[in-house]
């Protein structure tokens, strides 16, 4: 994992590369927090009302959600 495969595996010779790969992976993982929050926000604010099949309400919600973006 994180660059340990290959001839240098386990000998620590590629430690620098492994740390860089690890740092990159950590940053990617941290960024998932925003992705998950965004997705949850859209689901709770928009998709749940969609399930109620209230066309007028949906139009209104889409308009409002759009207007709140900044």
């Amino acid at each position: 994992m994180f660059g340990r495969k290959g001839p240098q595996a386990g000998r620590g010779g590629d430690l620098e590369k492994r740390v860089a790969a690890l740092e990159e992976a950590v940053q990617e993982n941290r960024a998932l927090n925003v992705r998950l929050a965004e997705l949850t926000d859209v689901v709770t604010e928009l998709l749940l009302p969609v399930a109620s099949r209230d066309e007028e309400k949906l139009e209104e919600l889409l308009g409002k959600y759009r207007g709140d973006l900044s």
């Binding site: 992705r35 965004e38 997705l39 859209v42 928009l46 889409l62 308009g63 959600y65 759009r66 973006l69």
Partner: peptide, 11 residues
């Protein structure tokens, strides 16, 4: 921002 991408595209 994924919120923009999803909500504006749905609109």
């Amino acid at each position: 921002e994924l919120r923009h991408v999803l909500a504006v595209s749905a609109w």
